[in-house]
């Protein structure tokens, strides 16, 4: 039996194995229920049928996934770059931050579905329009986290720098940026998920096919055609992409912060 295997005493193994077991159990139950009650596939398709659809419609779904990912990564990249720049400007003076921060919040609290139609009207090309919408969704955590990080400098260290007549540039590069790094990566993690959500929501609103037909468009189409297995397959791809993106960010911040940053080590142990 499983209980006898020494692997079960390995915490890392258990951490991966237990959610996996839950997942498998859920899928089996789902499959069993659908078969037992003979639920029609246009209501709830069985997992095996979804998998089959995924394979059969792979070309269509995969190209849609690529488009959604393209929008996501472009938006994420823009959010990271612009958000960091804005944060650097914010910490230059309290006045600038006070004057402009409310507008960053405004951007954050306005639902993207509400502004997406406008942006799609203003920006003729669908791809840039989608990227802009997703960027608006993803940018706020980067601005707020990085600003907070750049400001969270240890006052004793700041005194030390000032007494050593450090220039503003040295203070920024040697003190503020290293202090802000963990905050920045925290922002990236949140923002990567938001970029994907923003991309999907924007696609829904735009409803464009053709060159910008992403996964959301496939979901819409599948819904109209009552092709529920394909809808589920597309949905599954979005979820998998989201999880993969999150894991990528975790790895990236681990790699970037390396062994040297305290917060990473604390979080681990």
């Amino acid at each position: 039996m499983a209980a006898q295997t020494p692997l079960l005493y390995n915490p890392a193994f258990v951490r991966i194995l237990s959610p996996l077991l839950v997942g498998v159990a859920l899928l089996l139950t789902w499959e069993g229920l659908v078969r037992f009650y003979e639920v029609p596939k246009y209501l709830v398709p069985s997992p095996s049928l979804i998998a089959l659809t995924l394979v059969e419609d792979w070309r269509l779904l995969f190209s849609a996934l690529l488009i959604t990912l393209k929008v996501t990564f472009l938006a994420f990249f823009l959010a990271a770059v612009i958000g960091t720049l804005v944060a650097f400007i914010f910490v230059q003076s309290r006045w600038i931050e006070r004057a402009f921060f409310p507008y960053a919040v405004l951007l954050q609290v306005t639902p993207v579905v509400a502004i997406a139609p406008l942006i799609i009207i203003w920006v003729k090309d669908p791809l840039p329009a989608l990227v802009i919408c997703a960027t608006i969704v993803a940018i706020f955590p980067i601005i707020s986290n990085t600003t907070l990080g750049l400001r969270s400098v240890n006052p004793g260290l700041l005194n030390l720098f000032r007494m050593n007549k450090a220039s503003r540039w040295q203070e920024l590069i040697r003190l503020r940026v290293p202090t802000a790094l963990p905050y920045f990566f925290g922002g990236l993690r949140i923002s990567s998920g938001l970029a994907l959500i923003g991309a999907v929501v924007a696609e829904f609103v735009a409803g464009t096919g053709g060159t910008a037909a992403g996964l959301a468009y496939q979901i819409l189409q599948a819904g109209f055609q009552i092709n529920i297995p394909r809808l589920f397959a597309a949905l599954m791809l979005i979820t998998v992409a989201g999880v993969a993106l999150f894991l990528l960010m975790v790895l990236l911040s681990k790699w970037a912060l390396g062994q040297w940053h305290e917060s990473e080590l604390k979080a681990e142990t």
């Binding site: 030390l160 290293p178 040297w260």
Partner: peptide
């Protein structure tokens, strides 16, 4: 040179 009560070392270095 001023020495503070805390060591005030940069934790990342």
């Amino acid at each position: 040179v001023f020495v503070f009560q805390d060591a005030t070392l940069m934790p990342w270095a």
